[in-house]
Nucleic acid binder design. Structure first.
Lengths: 202, 202
DNA sequence: TCTATGATCTGTACATTGTTCAGATAAGGG
DNA sequence: CCCTTATCTGAACAATGTACAGATCATAGA
């Protein structure tokens, strides 16, 4: 009598991506603190030490996952941005708003992801890749602000530090809301205030 | 022959505060991830389970420590603020600057503290006490902004959301710098930009 | 087609962690 | 002085990250 196969294939075939995908699922549900390599391995149906062929340690897996989330966010933002494409001043203003709102909504929908992205885990290794991914969203912001100047919706004098101020306000309110120090509705208030300060809205 | 005393006193006498103090030391050095209750107990010279008479679990100890750090920050800010007391418009402007700078410098000097304060650990329990402590710093900011309006240094129209905008910019840049997404010098740039936007500086 | 080499995964093992709980010890009031 | 209560110990348990020797597969070269 032949014993039943323990697993369909000894070699998983796609273990590295499976590890990240499963880690993503666990972090999404329970946050990073409770993330266990053994649980991930068990869920995939693989031995506890299998992960160590792809990641030197638990931190590295979290780092890779974190960096991939920056890509996800940028993708999401770009998908939403094309809905308000156009050369008009109105469209440019709307793009600015969408850019901030998507950042915020992403964080509210998946606070554990947001926490991971700005945790120590995404700081360990060379920040080259991360910086590049960030720049994708950051370049989008710069492009948007240029549009605003071009359509005469924003004072040129304020343009110089507008990226810095915008990102700080959006990230700041988002962080404070996610951590429970501000209420949800404060985000739109802050965004209004920012647009007022930048002269985008009267 | 009498055996040497295992410890000076069976009852530590001040174990609760010793636990927090020692936890503070460890978090300051190595962050929250690596904080171990057993290491803390060993450092104090007490059994691993002694802490459970004062805290239900590890998370609670971190929460209490986190909340106490909000107090520390507020104390530090108030100590620095008295150095620029005065009714003049110049003094009010300087107070606003000091308020932001102390927040930032606190975080840069002790990034692990900053991370704990805005982590999930300080979100678990009733946020009543925390809110009160926050309000101490927040009330200081409000008072400062009122001074700015009173001395004619800020447009009254911008006063309404000035707290929100100020805290968001200061916290946002600080968070982004601590997490390595912005450079240190960006803080002063953002603060300049904020003051410009609020009309505090020309 | 056979074989050997390298990649991939298992199994076992170890130290460390958070946490529980029964019992030892001290402190202080009657 | 005793007895109650607060405080701490000690042993135990399950779970975790990680290391390492070996099993298993996949495939390139003969």
């Amino acid at each position: 009598m032949t014993t039943a196969r323990v697993r369909d294939q000894y070699h998983h075939g796609d273990l590295e991506v499976a590890l990240i995908t499963t880690a993503r699922k666990f972090v999404k549900k329970n946050g990073l603190e409770s993330l266990s390599l053994r649980q991930i391995a068990h869920e995939i149906g693989v031995s506890p030490s299998a992960a160590y062929h792809y990641f030197p340690d638990r931190n590295s897996l979290l780092a890779v996952l974190g960096f991939s989330l920056f890509e996800e966010l940028a993708d999401y933002q770009e998908r939403e941005l094309v809905k308000v494409a156009g050369a008009s001043a109105r469209a440019a203003r709307e793009r600015f708003r969408v850019l901030g709102r998507t950042y915020f909504e992403w964080a509210i929908r998946e606070p554990h992801f947001f926490n991971l992205m700005f945790s120590d885990f995404c700081l360990i290794e060379s920040s080259v890749e991360q910086t590049r991914e960030e720049n994708r969203a950051y370049q989008t912001l710069i492009h948007c602000l240029d549009d605003l100047v071009e359509t005469g919706s924003m004072d040129k004098k304020l343009r110089a530090s507008a990226e810095l101020l915008s990102w700080s306000v959006v990230h700041g309110t988002t962080s404070l809301i996610v951590s429970g120090h501000l209420d949800t509705e404060d985000f739109e208030r802050a965004l209004d205030s920012l647009e007022l300060a930048l002269g985008i809205r009267k």
